[in-house]
Write a protein that binds this DNA or RNA. Structure first.
Lengths: 245, 245
DNA sequence: ATATTAAATTAGGAGTACCTAATAAAGGGG
DNA sequence: CCCCTTTATTAGGTACTCCTAATTTAATAT
Protein backbone atom coordinates (compact mmCIF):
# COMPACT_ATOMS: atom_id res chain seq x y z
CA UNK A 1 0.00 0.00 0.00
CA UNK A 2 1.61 3.23 -1.11
CA UNK A 3 1.17 6.69 0.37
CA UNK A 4 -0.88 7.67 -2.67
CA UNK A 5 -3.40 4.89 -2.34
CA UNK A 6 -3.62 5.56 1.38
CA UNK A 7 -4.49 9.16 0.70
CA UNK A 8 -7.31 8.06 -1.56
CA UNK A 9 -8.69 5.85 1.19
CA UNK A 10 -8.42 8.59 3.78
CA UNK A 11 -10.27 11.13 1.69
CA UNK A 12 -12.90 8.63 0.65
CA UNK A 13 -13.52 7.89 4.29
CA UNK A 14 -13.80 11.54 5.22
CA UNK A 15 -16.11 12.39 2.34
CA UNK A 16 -18.22 9.30 2.76
CA UNK A 17 -18.80 10.08 6.44
CA UNK A 18 -19.95 13.55 5.52
CA UNK A 19 -21.88 12.96 2.32
CA UNK A 20 -22.42 9.28 1.61
CA UNK A 21 -21.35 7.95 -1.77
CA UNK A 22 -18.43 9.96 -3.13
CA UNK A 23 -18.35 11.52 -6.60
CA UNK A 24 -15.14 11.62 -8.58
CA UNK A 25 -15.30 15.37 -8.63
CA UNK A 26 -15.29 15.72 -4.84
CA UNK A 27 -12.50 13.23 -4.51
CA UNK A 28 -10.49 14.88 -7.23
CA UNK A 29 -10.84 18.24 -5.45
CA UNK A 30 -10.05 16.82 -2.04
CA UNK A 31 -6.89 15.16 -3.31
CA UNK A 32 -5.80 17.87 -5.69
CA UNK A 33 -5.48 15.29 -8.45
CA UNK A 34 -6.94 15.48 -11.95
CA UNK A 35 -10.33 13.74 -12.34
CA UNK A 36 -8.94 11.48 -15.03
CA UNK A 37 -6.26 10.20 -12.69
CA UNK A 38 -8.86 9.61 -10.03
CA UNK A 39 -10.99 7.47 -12.36
CA UNK A 40 -7.96 5.44 -13.19
CA UNK A 41 -6.95 4.92 -9.58
CA UNK A 42 -10.46 3.99 -8.50
CA UNK A 43 -10.47 1.18 -11.02
CA UNK A 44 -7.28 -0.12 -9.44
CA UNK A 45 -8.54 0.25 -5.88
CA UNK A 46 -11.71 -1.52 -6.98
CA UNK A 47 -9.71 -4.45 -8.31
CA UNK A 48 -7.81 -4.56 -5.05
CA UNK A 49 -11.10 -4.84 -3.16
CA UNK A 50 -10.70 -1.59 -1.27
CA UNK A 51 -13.54 0.33 -2.85
CA UNK A 52 -16.82 -0.46 -4.50
CA UNK A 53 -16.63 1.41 -7.75
CA UNK A 54 -18.69 1.35 -10.89
CA UNK A 55 -18.32 3.88 -13.65
CA UNK A 56 -20.61 6.91 -13.20
CA UNK A 57 -22.03 5.48 -9.95
CA UNK A 58 -19.93 7.13 -7.27
CA UNK A 59 -17.61 5.29 -4.90
CA UNK A 60 -17.88 3.69 -1.46
CA UNK A 61 -15.26 2.02 0.66
CA UNK A 62 -15.48 -1.72 1.18
CA UNK A 63 -15.15 -3.18 4.67
CA UNK A 64 -11.46 -3.65 4.08
CA UNK A 65 -11.02 -0.18 2.65
CA UNK A 66 -12.77 1.38 5.61
CA UNK A 67 -10.67 -0.64 8.03
CA UNK A 68 -7.50 0.67 6.44
CA UNK A 69 -8.75 4.23 6.43
CA UNK A 70 -9.60 4.00 10.11
CA UNK A 71 -6.16 2.57 10.90
CA UNK A 72 -4.56 5.51 9.16
CA UNK A 73 -6.75 7.96 11.02
CA UNK A 74 -5.90 6.32 14.29
CA UNK A 75 -2.19 6.57 13.57
CA UNK A 76 -2.54 10.16 12.47
CA UNK A 77 -4.32 11.26 15.61
CA UNK A 78 -2.06 9.39 17.97
CA UNK A 79 0.95 11.01 16.35
CA UNK A 80 -0.71 14.38 16.76
CA UNK A 81 -1.11 13.74 20.47
CA UNK A 82 2.51 12.68 20.77
CA UNK A 83 3.87 15.61 18.81
CA UNK A 84 1.88 18.09 20.83
CA UNK A 85 2.09 16.68 24.31
CA UNK A 86 5.65 15.51 24.24
CA UNK A 87 7.45 17.48 21.57
CA UNK A 88 5.75 20.84 22.01
CA UNK A 89 4.28 21.09 18.52
CA UNK A 90 1.56 23.56 17.66
CA UNK A 91 -1.74 22.22 16.36
CA UNK A 92 -0.93 22.91 12.76
CA UNK A 93 2.62 21.62 12.88
CA UNK A 94 1.45 18.45 14.58
CA UNK A 95 -1.09 17.94 11.85
CA UNK A 96 1.52 18.38 9.12
CA UNK A 97 4.05 15.97 10.50
CA UNK A 98 1.42 13.41 11.50
CA UNK A 99 0.39 13.46 7.86
CA UNK A 100 3.83 12.12 6.99
CA UNK A 101 4.25 9.70 9.86
CA UNK A 102 0.88 7.99 9.52
CA UNK A 103 1.98 6.35 6.27
CA UNK A 104 4.92 4.54 7.84
CA UNK A 105 3.35 3.41 11.07
CA UNK A 106 2.94 -0.34 11.34
CA UNK A 107 0.22 -1.73 13.60
CA UNK A 108 2.64 -2.58 16.39
CA UNK A 109 3.82 1.02 16.49
CA UNK A 110 0.27 2.35 16.58
CA UNK A 111 -0.55 0.12 19.52
CA UNK A 112 2.54 0.93 21.50
CA UNK A 113 2.10 4.62 20.88
CA UNK A 114 -1.46 4.33 22.11
CA UNK A 115 -0.29 2.65 25.29
CA UNK A 116 2.51 5.14 25.77
CA UNK A 117 0.11 8.05 25.43
CA UNK A 118 -2.34 6.41 27.80
CA UNK A 119 -5.09 5.63 25.32
CA UNK A 120 -6.15 9.17 24.60
CA UNK A 121 -9.78 9.50 23.56
CA UNK A 122 -9.29 12.50 21.29
CA UNK A 123 -6.66 14.13 19.15
CA UNK A 124 -5.50 17.63 20.02
CA UNK A 125 -8.30 19.31 18.06
CA UNK A 126 -10.90 17.12 19.65
CA UNK A 127 -11.58 14.50 17.00
CA UNK A 128 -12.13 11.05 18.47
CA UNK A 129 -9.34 8.52 18.09
CA UNK A 130 -10.95 5.38 16.71
CA UNK A 131 -10.25 2.16 18.57
CA UNK A 132 -11.15 -1.48 18.38
CA UNK A 133 -14.25 -1.71 20.53
CA UNK A 134 -17.08 0.74 20.61
CA UNK A 135 -16.27 4.31 21.28
CA UNK A 136 -17.74 5.86 24.38
CA UNK A 137 -19.99 8.24 22.47
CA UNK A 138 -19.30 11.81 23.38
CA UNK A 139 -21.87 14.32 24.53
CA UNK A 140 -23.47 16.02 21.59
CA UNK A 141 -21.55 18.97 20.27
CA UNK A 142 -22.88 22.17 18.76
CA UNK A 143 -21.10 24.90 16.88
CA UNK A 144 -20.16 27.74 19.18
CA UNK A 145 -21.88 30.09 16.75
CA UNK A 146 -25.21 28.44 17.60
CA UNK A 147 -24.96 28.88 21.35
CA UNK A 148 -26.96 31.76 22.81
CA UNK A 149 -25.24 34.19 25.14
CA UNK A 150 -25.27 33.26 28.79
CA UNK A 151 -24.64 29.57 28.29
CA UNK A 152 -21.85 27.68 29.93
CA UNK A 153 -19.97 25.37 27.61
CA UNK A 154 -16.91 23.16 27.37
CA UNK A 155 -14.74 23.66 24.29
CA UNK A 156 -14.43 20.28 22.65
CA UNK A 157 -13.37 20.41 19.04
CA UNK A 158 -12.00 22.75 16.40
CA UNK A 159 -11.86 22.13 12.67
CA UNK A 160 -8.53 21.12 11.22
CA UNK A 161 -7.81 24.24 9.23
CA UNK A 162 -4.37 25.60 9.45
CA UNK A 163 -5.26 29.28 9.69
CA UNK A 164 -7.92 28.61 12.31
CA UNK A 165 -5.64 26.43 14.39
CA UNK A 166 -2.88 29.01 14.37
CA UNK A 167 -5.34 31.78 15.21
CA UNK A 168 -6.87 29.97 18.15
CA UNK A 169 -3.56 28.83 19.46
CA UNK A 170 -2.18 32.35 19.32
CA UNK A 171 -4.99 33.51 21.58
CA UNK A 172 -4.42 30.60 23.91
CA UNK A 173 -7.76 28.99 23.58
CA UNK A 174 -7.59 25.56 25.16
CA UNK A 175 -9.74 22.58 24.43
CA UNK A 176 -11.61 20.94 27.28
CA UNK A 177 -11.66 24.25 29.12
CA UNK A 178 -14.95 25.62 30.39
CA UNK A 179 -16.20 28.88 29.01
CA UNK A 180 -19.13 31.21 29.33
CA UNK A 181 -20.56 32.73 26.20
CA UNK A 182 -20.83 36.31 27.34
CA UNK A 183 -22.23 37.84 24.16
CA UNK A 184 -23.23 36.91 20.66
CA UNK A 185 -23.24 39.66 18.08
CA UNK A 186 -26.27 39.82 15.81
CA UNK A 187 -25.95 39.40 12.03
CA UNK A 188 -22.96 37.07 12.28
CA UNK A 189 -21.20 39.41 14.65
CA UNK A 190 -18.39 38.22 16.91
CA UNK A 191 -18.88 35.85 19.82
CA UNK A 192 -17.45 36.86 23.18
CA UNK A 193 -16.15 34.21 25.50
CA UNK A 194 -14.86 34.11 29.04
CA UNK A 195 -12.54 31.19 29.62
CA UNK A 196 -9.77 30.52 32.12
CA UNK A 197 -10.13 34.05 33.42
CA UNK A 198 -9.51 35.56 29.98
CA UNK A 199 -11.96 37.39 27.79
CA UNK A 200 -11.75 36.71 24.11
CA UNK A 201 -13.72 37.66 21.07
CA UNK A 202 -14.02 35.30 18.16
CA UNK A 203 -15.23 36.04 14.68
CA UNK A 204 -18.44 34.37 13.65
CA UNK A 205 -16.43 32.40 11.13
CA UNK A 206 -14.21 31.00 13.87
CA UNK A 207 -17.22 30.29 16.10
CA UNK A 208 -18.78 28.21 13.33
CA UNK A 209 -15.70 26.02 13.38
CA UNK A 210 -15.48 25.50 17.13
CA UNK A 211 -17.69 22.87 18.71
CA UNK A 212 -18.76 22.82 22.30
CA UNK A 213 -20.65 20.75 24.80
CA UNK A 214 -23.34 22.68 26.61
CA UNK A 215 -23.47 22.42 30.37
CA UNK A 216 -26.92 22.45 31.90
CA UNK A 217 -26.30 24.27 35.14
CA UNK A 218 -26.38 27.98 35.92
CA UNK A 219 -28.04 29.13 32.79
CA UNK A 220 -30.87 30.97 34.49
CA UNK A 221 -28.63 32.43 37.16
CA UNK A 222 -26.16 33.79 34.62
CA UNK A 223 -28.94 35.62 32.89
CA UNK A 224 -30.15 37.00 36.21
CA UNK A 225 -26.69 38.35 36.85
CA UNK A 226 -26.92 40.53 33.78
CA UNK A 227 -25.17 38.69 31.01
CA UNK A 228 -26.42 39.89 27.71
CA UNK A 229 -29.11 38.30 25.62
CA UNK A 230 -28.56 36.56 22.27
CA UNK A 231 -30.43 39.30 20.48
CA UNK A 232 -28.65 42.15 22.27
CA UNK A 233 -25.90 43.25 19.94
CA UNK A 234 -24.39 45.71 22.45
CA UNK A 235 -21.06 45.77 24.25
CA UNK A 236 -19.10 42.60 23.67
CA UNK A 237 -16.10 43.10 25.89
CA UNK A 238 -17.83 41.74 29.00
CA UNK A 239 -16.37 42.10 32.48
CA UNK A 240 -13.91 39.48 33.65
CA UNK A 241 -16.01 39.10 36.72
CA UNK A 242 -15.28 35.49 37.54
CA UNK A 243 -13.21 32.55 36.33
CA UNK A 244 -14.76 30.00 34.03
CA UNK A 245 -13.95 26.99 36.14
CA UNK B 1 14.05 13.43 -2.21
CA UNK B 2 12.41 10.04 -2.37
CA UNK B 3 12.94 7.11 -0.06
CA UNK B 4 14.83 5.33 -2.83
CA UNK B 5 17.36 8.05 -3.33
CA UNK B 6 17.74 8.39 0.41
CA UNK B 7 18.57 4.73 0.65
CA UNK B 8 21.28 5.15 -1.96
CA UNK B 9 22.81 7.99 0.02
CA UNK B 10 22.66 6.06 3.27
CA UNK B 11 24.40 3.03 1.84
CA UNK B 12 26.96 5.13 0.04
CA UNK B 13 27.76 6.81 3.32
CA UNK B 14 28.08 3.55 5.16
CA UNK B 15 30.26 1.94 2.53
CA UNK B 16 32.40 4.99 1.99
CA UNK B 17 33.12 5.21 5.73
CA UNK B 18 34.24 1.61 5.70
CA UNK B 19 36.04 1.31 2.40
CA UNK B 20 36.50 4.65 0.69
CA UNK B 21 35.32 5.00 -2.89
CA UNK B 22 32.32 2.73 -3.50
CA UNK B 23 32.08 0.28 -6.41
CA UNK B 24 28.76 -0.31 -8.11
CA UNK B 25 28.94 -3.94 -7.17
CA UNK B 26 29.13 -3.23 -3.43
CA UNK B 27 26.35 -0.70 -3.65
CA UNK B 28 24.20 -3.00 -5.70
CA UNK B 29 24.64 -5.75 -3.12
CA UNK B 30 24.00 -3.46 -0.18
CA UNK B 31 20.79 -2.15 -1.69
CA UNK B 32 19.61 -5.41 -3.20
CA UNK B 33 19.15 -3.68 -6.53
CA UNK B 34 20.48 -4.84 -9.91
CA UNK B 35 23.83 -3.30 -10.91
CA UNK B 36 22.29 -1.85 -14.04
CA UNK B 37 19.73 0.06 -12.02
CA UNK B 38 22.46 1.32 -9.75
CA UNK B 39 24.48 2.70 -12.67
CA UNK B 40 21.42 4.48 -13.88
CA UNK B 41 20.57 5.98 -10.51
CA UNK B 42 24.12 7.12 -9.88
CA UNK B 43 24.01 9.14 -13.09
CA UNK B 44 20.91 10.89 -11.76
CA UNK B 45 22.33 11.46 -8.30
CA UNK B 46 25.43 12.82 -9.99
CA UNK B 47 23.38 15.32 -11.95
CA UNK B 48 21.65 16.34 -8.75
CA UNK B 49 25.02 17.06 -7.17
CA UNK B 50 24.69 14.46 -4.45
CA UNK B 51 27.46 12.14 -5.59
CA UNK B 52 30.65 12.40 -7.54
CA UNK B 53 30.31 9.73 -10.14
CA UNK B 54 32.20 8.88 -13.28
CA UNK B 55 31.69 5.69 -15.23
CA UNK B 56 33.98 2.88 -14.09
CA UNK B 57 35.56 5.12 -11.44
CA UNK B 58 33.59 4.31 -8.31
CA UNK B 59 31.42 6.76 -6.43
CA UNK B 60 31.84 9.22 -3.57
CA UNK B 61 29.33 11.45 -1.85
CA UNK B 62 29.60 15.19 -2.35
CA UNK B 63 29.42 17.55 0.63
CA UNK B 64 25.70 17.88 0.14
CA UNK B 65 25.19 14.17 -0.31
CA UNK B 66 27.08 13.44 2.87
CA UNK B 67 25.12 16.06 4.78
CA UNK B 68 21.88 14.41 3.75
CA UNK B 69 23.09 10.96 4.64
CA UNK B 70 24.16 12.15 8.07
CA UNK B 71 20.76 13.78 8.64
CA UNK B 72 19.08 10.51 7.84
CA UNK B 73 21.37 8.59 10.13
CA UNK B 74 20.69 11.04 12.92
CA UNK B 75 16.94 10.65 12.48
CA UNK B 76 17.25 6.91 12.32
CA UNK B 77 19.20 6.63 15.54
CA UNK B 78 17.06 9.07 17.46
CA UNK B 79 13.99 7.12 16.50
CA UNK B 80 15.68 3.95 17.66
CA UNK B 81 16.28 5.52 21.04
CA UNK B 82 12.68 6.65 21.27
CA UNK B 83 11.23 3.32 20.21
CA UNK B 84 13.33 1.44 22.69
CA UNK B 85 13.32 3.69 25.69
CA UNK B 86 9.74 4.83 25.52
CA UNK B 87 7.83 2.25 23.57
CA UNK B 88 9.57 -0.87 24.76
CA UNK B 89 10.83 -2.04 21.37
CA UNK B 90 13.50 -4.68 21.01
CA UNK B 91 16.72 -3.76 19.21
CA UNK B 92 15.71 -5.35 15.97
CA UNK B 93 12.16 -4.02 15.96
CA UNK B 94 13.42 -0.53 16.73
CA UNK B 95 15.80 -0.77 13.82
CA UNK B 96 13.06 -1.87 11.44
CA UNK B 97 10.59 0.83 12.29
CA UNK B 98 13.26 3.54 12.46
CA UNK B 99 14.09 2.53 8.91
CA UNK B 100 10.61 3.64 7.91
CA UNK B 101 10.32 6.72 10.08
CA UNK B 102 13.65 8.25 9.11
CA UNK B 103 12.39 9.00 5.61
CA UNK B 104 9.51 11.18 6.82
CA UNK B 105 11.25 13.08 9.55
CA UNK B 106 11.64 16.78 8.83
CA UNK B 107 14.46 18.71 10.48
CA UNK B 108 12.20 20.24 13.11
CA UNK B 109 11.05 16.83 14.19
CA UNK B 110 14.60 15.54 14.42
CA UNK B 111 15.56 18.45 16.64
CA UNK B 112 12.59 18.20 18.95
CA UNK B 113 13.03 14.48 19.26
CA UNK B 114 16.66 15.05 20.18
CA UNK B 115 15.66 17.50 22.89
CA UNK B 116 12.91 15.23 24.14
CA UNK B 117 15.31 12.32 24.41
CA UNK B 118 17.86 14.49 26.13
CA UNK B 119 20.46 14.57 23.40
CA UNK B 120 21.50 10.95 23.55
CA UNK B 121 25.06 10.31 22.44
CA UNK B 122 24.47 6.84 21.05
CA UNK B 123 21.73 4.75 19.56
CA UNK B 124 20.64 1.59 21.35
CA UNK B 125 23.33 -0.57 19.72
CA UNK B 126 26.00 1.94 20.54
CA UNK B 127 26.51 3.79 17.27
CA UNK B 128 27.14 7.49 17.81
CA UNK B 129 24.32 9.87 16.94
CA UNK B 130 25.87 12.51 14.73
CA UNK B 131 25.26 16.12 15.74
CA UNK B 132 26.16 19.59 14.55
CA UNK B 133 29.36 20.34 16.43
CA UNK B 134 32.20 17.95 16.98
CA UNK B 135 31.42 14.68 18.56
CA UNK B 136 33.06 13.93 21.89
CA UNK B 137 35.21 11.12 20.51
CA UNK B 138 34.58 7.93 22.33
CA UNK B 139 37.22 5.75 23.92
CA UNK B 140 38.67 3.34 21.42
CA UNK B 141 36.68 0.16 20.98
CA UNK B 142 37.92 -3.31 20.25
CA UNK B 143 36.06 -6.41 19.21
CA UNK B 144 35.26 -8.59 22.19
CA UNK B 145 36.84 -11.48 20.33
CA UNK B 146 40.20 -9.70 20.55
CA UNK B 147 40.16 -9.20 24.29
CA UNK B 148 42.25 -11.66 26.30
CA UNK B 149 40.66 -13.40 29.25
CA UNK B 150 40.86 -11.61 32.55
CA UNK B 151 40.22 -8.14 31.19
CA UNK B 152 37.54 -5.85 32.47
CA UNK B 153 35.54 -4.16 29.77
CA UNK B 154 32.46 -2.07 29.18
CA UNK B 155 30.12 -3.29 26.44
CA UNK B 156 29.71 -0.42 24.03
CA UNK B 157 28.45 -1.46 20.65
CA UNK B 158 26.94 -4.36 18.75
CA UNK B 159 26.59 -4.70 15.00
CA UNK B 160 23.15 -4.06 13.57
CA UNK B 161 22.35 -7.58 12.47
CA UNK B 162 18.93 -8.84 13.22
CA UNK B 163 19.85 -12.32 14.33
CA UNK B 164 22.66 -11.03 16.53
CA UNK B 165 20.50 -8.37 18.14
CA UNK B 166 17.75 -10.85 18.93
CA UNK B 167 20.28 -13.35 20.28
CA UNK B 168 21.97 -10.87 22.58
CA UNK B 169 18.73 -9.40 23.76
CA UNK B 170 17.35 -12.83 24.59
CA UNK B 171 20.30 -13.41 26.88
CA UNK B 172 19.83 -9.98 28.42
CA UNK B 173 23.15 -8.56 27.50
CA UNK B 174 23.05 -4.85 28.18
CA UNK B 175 25.14 -2.14 26.59
CA UNK B 176 27.17 0.13 28.85
CA UNK B 177 27.33 -2.63 31.42
CA UNK B 178 30.67 -3.68 32.82
CA UNK B 179 31.85 -7.17 32.19
CA UNK B 180 34.80 -9.39 32.89
CA UNK B 181 36.06 -11.67 30.19
CA UNK B 182 36.39 -14.87 32.12
CA UNK B 183 37.56 -17.14 29.34
CA UNK B 184 38.39 -17.12 25.68
CA UNK B 185 38.27 -20.42 23.87
CA UNK B 186 41.17 -21.21 21.55
CA UNK B 187 40.60 -21.73 17.82
CA UNK B 188 37.66 -19.38 17.66
CA UNK B 189 36.03 -21.01 20.65
CA UNK B 190 33.36 -19.28 22.71
CA UNK B 191 34.03 -16.26 24.91
CA UNK B 192 32.78 -16.37 28.47
CA UNK B 193 31.64 -13.22 30.16
CA UNK B 194 30.56 -12.23 33.63
CA UNK B 195 28.26 -9.22 33.61
CA UNK B 196 25.64 -7.94 36.02
CA UNK B 197 26.06 -11.04 38.11
CA UNK B 198 25.29 -13.34 35.19
CA UNK B 199 27.59 -15.68 33.36
CA UNK B 200 27.17 -15.95 29.65
CA UNK B 201 28.95 -17.64 26.83
CA UNK B 202 29.08 -16.09 23.44
CA UNK B 203 30.10 -17.69 20.19
CA UNK B 204 33.24 -16.37 18.59
CA UNK B 205 31.08 -15.06 15.79
CA UNK B 206 29.04 -13.00 18.23
CA UNK B 207 32.15 -11.78 20.02
CA UNK B 208 33.55 -10.49 16.76
CA UNK B 209 30.46 -8.31 16.45
CA UNK B 210 30.47 -6.87 19.93
CA UNK B 211 32.75 -3.95 20.67
CA UNK B 212 34.02 -3.03 24.06
CA UNK B 213 36.04 -0.42 25.88
CA UNK B 214 38.82 -1.86 27.94
CA UNK B 215 39.13 -0.71 31.51
CA UNK B 216 42.62 -0.45 32.89
CA UNK B 217 42.13 -1.50 36.47
CA UNK B 218 42.14 -4.91 38.11
CA UNK B 219 43.63 -6.82 35.28
CA UNK B 220 46.52 -8.27 37.25
CA UNK B 221 44.41 -9.01 40.30
CA UNK B 222 41.82 -10.87 38.28
CA UNK B 223 44.48 -13.11 36.93
CA UNK B 224 45.82 -13.69 40.44
CA UNK B 225 42.36 -14.80 41.48
CA UNK B 226 42.46 -17.66 39.05
CA UNK B 227 40.63 -16.45 35.98
CA UNK B 228 41.68 -18.47 33.04
CA UNK B 229 44.27 -17.58 30.50
CA UNK B 230 43.63 -16.76 26.85
CA UNK B 231 45.40 -19.89 25.75
CA UNK B 232 43.70 -22.14 28.25
CA UNK B 233 40.82 -23.73 26.39
CA UNK B 234 39.45 -25.50 29.45
CA UNK B 235 36.26 -24.99 31.41
CA UNK B 236 34.40 -21.93 30.30
CA UNK B 237 31.43 -21.91 32.63
CA UNK B 238 33.18 -19.84 35.30
CA UNK B 239 31.78 -19.31 38.76
CA UNK B 240 29.31 -16.49 39.33
CA UNK B 241 31.49 -15.38 42.15
CA UNK B 242 30.86 -11.64 42.12
CA UNK B 243 28.91 -8.99 40.30
CA UNK B 244 30.57 -7.05 37.52
CA UNK B 245 29.75 -3.60 38.79
C1' DA C 1 50.74 -9.47 -24.45
C1' DT C 2 46.62 -11.72 -24.71
C1' DA C 3 42.92 -14.59 -23.05
C1' DT C 4 39.79 -14.98 -19.55
C1' DT C 5 37.00 -13.30 -15.94
C1' DA C 6 34.79 -9.79 -13.35
C1' DA C 7 32.56 -5.37 -13.24
C1' DA C 8 30.04 -1.76 -15.28
C1' DT C 9 27.25 0.23 -18.79
C1' DT C 10 23.76 0.50 -22.42
C1' DA C 11 19.44 -1.16 -24.52
C1' DG C 12 14.91 -2.44 -24.22
C1' DG C 13 10.88 -3.19 -21.17
C1' DA C 14 7.57 -3.09 -17.32
C1' DG C 15 4.71 -0.98 -13.48
C1' DT C 16 3.01 3.01 -10.94
C1' DA C 17 0.94 7.34 -10.88
C1' DC C 18 0.44 11.43 -12.71
C1' DC C 19 -1.00 14.83 -16.71
C1' DT C 20 -3.79 17.01 -20.86
C1' DA C 21 -7.03 16.51 -24.50
C1' DA C 22 -10.71 14.23 -26.52
C1' DT C 23 -14.94 11.70 -26.03
C1' DA C 24 -19.03 9.85 -23.72
C1' DA C 25 -22.75 9.71 -20.27
C1' DA C 26 -26.08 12.08 -17.01
C1' DG C 27 -29.12 15.48 -15.70
C1' DG C 28 -31.74 19.99 -15.78
C1' DG C 29 -34.42 23.79 -18.29
C1' DG C 30 -37.07 25.11 -21.76
C1' DC D 1 -38.01 15.39 -25.40
C1' DC D 2 -33.77 17.47 -26.70
C1' DC D 3 -29.94 20.72 -25.98
C1' DC D 4 -26.32 22.07 -23.09
C1' DT D 5 -23.67 21.92 -19.09
C1' DT D 6 -21.48 19.16 -15.82
C1' DT D 7 -19.27 15.05 -14.67
C1' DA D 8 -16.78 11.05 -15.83
C1' DT D 9 -14.06 8.10 -18.80
C1' DT D 10 -10.74 6.81 -22.35
C1' DA D 11 -6.60 7.77 -25.05
C1' DG D 12 -2.04 9.01 -25.36
C1' DG D 13 2.04 10.64 -23.08
C1' DT D 14 5.67 11.72 -19.24
C1' DA D 15 8.59 10.73 -15.26
C1' DC D 16 10.47 7.61 -12.02
C1' DT D 17 12.51 3.35 -10.77
C1' DC D 18 13.04 -1.10 -11.32
C1' DC D 19 14.25 -5.41 -14.31
C1' DT D 20 16.92 -8.76 -17.75
C1' DA D 21 19.94 -9.33 -21.56
C1' DA D 22 23.58 -7.78 -24.35
C1' DT D 23 27.73 -5.26 -24.73
C1' DT D 24 31.77 -2.85 -23.30
C1' DT D 25 35.60 -1.86 -20.21
C1' DA D 26 38.91 -3.12 -16.77
C1' DA D 27 41.66 -6.31 -14.27
C1' DT D 28 44.12 -10.71 -13.79
C1' DA D 29 46.79 -14.57 -14.87
C1' DT D 30 49.47 -17.01 -17.78
Amino acid sequence: MTTNREDYLKQLYRLEEAEGSVSNKRLSEALGIAPASVSEMLVKLGKEGLVQYEAYQGTRLTEEGRRRAVDLLRGHRLWEVFLREHLGYSWSEAHEDAELLEHVTPARLVERLDTYLNHPAHCPHGEPIPRGGDQAPRAELVALSEVPAGRRVILRKVREERALMDYLEAMELHLDAEAVVTAVGAYEGPVALLTEGKDMQLSHKAAERIFVEEIESRRKEDEDQGIENPSGGGSIAGGASRGAR
